[in-house]
Nucleic acid binder design. Sequence first.
DNA 1: GTCTATATGGGGATAGAC
DNA 2: GTCTATCCCCATATAGAC
Lengths: 197, 197
Amino acid sequence: MGKVSTRQHIIERADQLFYERGFEATSFADIAQAVGISRGNFYHHFKKKDDLLDAVVERRMANTRMMLDQWASAFPEPKDRIRAFIQILIVNQAKIMAHGCPVGTLCAELAKLEHVAQNSARQIFGLFRDWLAEQFRSLGRTQGAEALALHLLGRSQGVTALAMAFRDPAFVETEVAALERWLDSIDQPALPQDQPS
Amino acid sequence: MGKVSTRQHIIERADQLFYERGFEATSFADIAQAVGISRGNFYHHFKKKDDLLDAVVERRMANTRMMLDQWASAFPEPKDRIRAFIQILIVNQAKIMAHGCPVGTLCAELAKLEHVAQNSARQIFGLFRDWLAEQFRSLGRTQGAEALALHLLGRSQGVTALAMAFRDPAFVETEVAALERWLDSIDQPALPQDQPS
DNA sequence: GTCTATATGGGGATAGAC
DNA sequence: GTCTATCCCCATATAGAC
């Protein structure tokens, strides 16, 4: 407690800078300066930039899991849990208008670089997809749960993309309201006690 | 005719490479090689990389205008025009899964770089927004036309984002079908001959 | 207009002293 | 674990011959 390790400190700052400026555009000099260490010290903790990227992706995975667990604890109702997901767009509105979605923009950048870490980055999306699908299943949508999850994930990605381009808070709020109406309109079938055939 | 100017050739190749690899990740050496000229010759045509970016954005603007005009000529019905927009996701499916949307990914990259060309890039989105809004207005949606346009633009951006991350053709097709159902469900009010008050 | 140098700077990465 | 010093490469950009 109190003081985090230098390694952890590097990962945190790199996470932030990769998000704000992008992976490639962030140099070791940038991170070293943000952390307050020399560039040389850097290589004691991470041999290659890709190693650091792996650590950052791992951190984001862990943080995502924590956030999803927290929502699950805080909200017993699946719809409230899904609403919490939608509300990220409002809670992080300023950051999203400035730098987009951390997951989406990283995946896009790594795809263009044909970077090996593409697969790990996509798994963060996978966490959201699976968690959302679980909530839709709890709502009785046992069949199309994954499609619903991907639909919602896509809708939120679309909002972040245009939020970044146009920087219009009103657009974000309009779309969030539309998403919440969409969620409310999801029919909640009676619990299937008897399953035909 | 026949042979395009070297300048034009550079712009075309840069356009393609900026899309496939990203703006920053594409070097003059890459473009020079693709065009088949020396790096030195390059600077005869463009003093700075940013000048080339401007030219590429201008080209994309012009190409977008041409495409929209072409759709307007080919389809008299607004719904068919909007359908043509939605169908880009199918027509360019392979490229989108590999490199995303050319406009969205460029805007995202420039936003992170805090690049001055951000404003020009966003105007490409503006072309789509305004053209789509006009189609919705033709459908009788005189009030919420722009919101509908942004909604559709956002939905399509969301599809490209997840298409790039998951590379799942089935997802794209499912979402395109959903978008077409959404479009069909847009009520087409009777032409407002008498306007209250 | 096109080429071959070349200048200059920044990036990732290493060696080795403390 | 942290530092300074350094290597090497590649990027943008320039100068000047053809």
